[in-house]
């Protein structure tokens, strides 16, 4: 079997474990589909209590849907190799004759499945229940921006996963740290431009910031108060995707070598 075929099979096998695992424990449908909508509803009612323009409710629904992917990147990608080591799977992955990148790509693919279900249900139910008005002028551009955002964000998750592998419980705490603070910095519930140019520029290093901003502009037009023109954001996202995926391959190789030298690949419960 060629290396390509082997790696594709390995990636699909890793994705299969996640998707089939999810279907064998159907309780996730309730937790991941219905309950996240409640948090979104809270922010919508908060905007209503403040007397905000209804377009802000659309921002909340979009941001709430995108949290699914960010959470998956943090917990299902960045922290996953650390978690695999904790439960003893990592050493099995290391002795298998596949590329580690195929493993990470499979994790991303499997994670995308449950995250997409959650995001799509939040988006559809949010739009229907709260009567969010969307002005989608260019659906193809939206699909392109979404795809690039996912490539960049999951590339970032893949890069972080090897970094987190070198840490102990820090990995858990760093993931925690990157949750709500990123919702704030990346403008999940309001236009990121409101934070000022300096903060927005720093936040743009996280791909989901520009991805969200571009999607907001494509869905809500002028009312979105975009940070940069969509075309510029698309170019930056494409660059970020390439850089993060290269960084993921590079850091995974370096961390694996370092992990072998320092005996960290089988270290548990530290």
């Amino acid at each position: 079997m060629s290396d390509w075929a082997l790696n594709i099979r390995a990636g699909l096998a890793r994705a299969y474990a996640r998707t089939v695992g999810a279907t064998r424990e159907p309780s996730w449908v309730v937790f991941d589909v219905l309950l996240p909508l409640l948090g979104v509803a809270a922010y919508i009612f908060y905007y209503r209590a403040l007397g905000a323009d209804p377009v802000f409710e659309g921002f909340v629904v979009l941001g709430g849907a995108m949290t699914a992917f960010w959470l998956n990147v943090l917990w299902g990608m960045a922290a996953q190799l650390f978690w695999e080591r904790e439960v003893g799977n990592l050493q099995l992955f290391m002795v298998a004759p596949m590329s580690r990148m195929a493993l990470l790509a499979g994790m991303a693919l499997g994670g995308l499945f449950t995250s997409a279900v959650r995001a799509l249900s939040t988006l559809v139910l949010g739009v229907l229940i709260f009567q969010v008005h969307i002005m989608m002028a260019d659906p193809l551009a939206l699909v392109a921006v979404f795809t690039l955002t996912m490539l960049a964000v999951y590339g970032m998750g893949m890069a972080l996963s090897s970094l987190f592998l070198m840490y102990g419980r820090d990995a858990w705490n760093i993931s925690n740290l990157l949750q709500e603070p990123v919702y704030l910095m990346s403008g999940f519930y309001f236009p990121v431009r409101e934070l000022g140019m300096v903060v927005s520029a720093v936040a743009s290093l996280i791909p989901i910031t520009l991805g969200l901003d571009a999607m907001r502009q494509l869905l809500f037009g002028e009312l979105a108060g975009g940070l940069l023109p969509v075309t510029v954001e698309v170019v930056i996202l494409a660059l970020q995707a390439a850089i993060f995926i290269w960084l993921a391959a590079f850091s995974l190789d370096r961390m694996e070598q370092r992990g072998r030298r320092e005996g960290r690949l089988t270290l548990r419960w530290q």
């Binding site: 309730v30 937790f31 219905l34 309950l35 409640l38 948090g39 809270a42 908060y46 209590a49 917990w75």
Partner: peptide, 22 residues
């Protein structure tokens, strides 16, 4: 799914108890 349970119940209580709006 305990994190999802937490998130969901947290969202429910946050929404219905008037944490940030009357």
């Amino acid at each position: 799914h305990s994190t999802s349970i937490n998130e969901g119940v947290g969202g429910l209580v946050y929404l219905l108890c008037g944490a940030v709006f009357p």
